[in-house]
Design a protein around this nucleic acid. Structure first.
Lengths: 130, 130
DNA sequence: GTTCCTGCAAAAGCTTTGCAGAAGA
DNA sequence: TCTTCTGCAAAGCTTTTGCAGGAAC
C-alpha cells in the first residue's frame, strides 16, 4: 500500500517535471494522507510547514501530476475535486451520515466508471499507425 | 430501459413536489436523453420549447429530484455535474478521445463508488431507534 | 387563500489564467 | 543562461441564494 516516494521523484524526472520543494511536499502529503484530500485540505495541511505555499501552486502541481498519470482526480458529489496518489484499481466508499468510512457498509448506491478508448477511435488510431 | 413518466409524476406527488410545466419538461428531457446531460445541455435542449426557462429552475428541479431519489448526480471529471434519471446500478463508460462510447472499450482507468452507511453510524442509528 | 415555484440578479465557491520575480537544471 | 516554477491578483465557471411576482393546489 505504501508508495515509494523515491520512485515517484524518478517518475517526475522521466516526465520532465522539475522537482521543487513545493511539489515534493504536495506529493508527501498525498502519500501520507490516503483520504482523497481536497486542495483545501492539502493547503491547510501544509500551511504550518510552508506558510507561503499558494493554492495556485497546489493546483499547478496536481495538474502536472495528473498529466503524468501519477495522481488521479475524483469528483463525486460536492463539486470539489479530490486527489488520489493510488492509481491502482480500488473502490471508494463514502458514508452518507458521517461522510467517512471503509468496510462494513450498508450500500445504497453503486457506481462504476470506466475510461478508455472506444471502438471507433481505436479503429482510427490503427489507420493512423499504418 | 424506458422509464414510465406517469410513474414519475406519481412519485412527485408522493414526495409533495408540485408538478409544474417546467419540472415535467426537465423530467421528459432526462427521460429522452440518457447521456447524463449537464445543466447546460438541458438548458439549451429546452430553450426552443420554453424560451423563458431559467437555469435556476433547472437547478432547483434537479435538486428536488435528487432529494426524492428520482435522479442521480454524476460528477466525474470536468467539475460539472451530470444528471441521470436511471438510478439502477449500471456502469458509466467514457472515451478519452471522442468523449462518447459504450461497448468494446479499451479500458485505462476503473473506478467504483459506493455510498451508504458505515458501521459506526449504523450502530448509532440502532441505538436511536430502540 | 395559502403555499410553493419561477426566474432575475447577485453572491459564493472552486479552478484557471496572466504575469513578474524567483528558483531549478 | 535558459527554461520552468511560484504565487499574487484577477477572471472564468458552475452552482446557490435572496426575493418579488406568479402558478399550483
Amino acid at each position: 500500500m505504501k508508495t515509494n516516494l523515491e520512485g515517484i521523484t524518478n517518475k517526475l524526472k522521466d516526465n520532465n517535471i522539475r522537482l521543487s520543494h513545493q511539489r515534493l511536499k504536495v506529493l508527501e502529503y498525498l502519500d501520507r494522507h490516503r483520504i482523497h484530500p481536497t486542495v483545501e485540505q492539502i493547503y491547510h495541511g501544509l500551511n504550518e510547514e510552508i506558510p507561503t505555499l499558494s493554492k495556485t501552486t497546489i493546483y499547478n502541481t496536481l495538474n502536472k501530476l495528473i498529466e503524468a498519470g501519477l495522481v488521479k482526480v475524483i469528483t463525486i458529489e460536492d463539486n470539489e475535486a479530490r486527489y488520489d496518489i493510488n492509481t491502482d484499481f480500488h473502490g471508494h466508499f463514502k458514508c452518507r451520515t458521517c461522510e467517512k468510512g471503509l468496510d462494513g457498509f450498508r450500500i445504497y448506491t453503486r457506481d462504476m466508471y470506466f475510461s478508455g478508448i472506444c471502438p471507433r477511435c481505436s479503429e482510427q488510431e490503427k489507420c493512423k499507425d499504418s
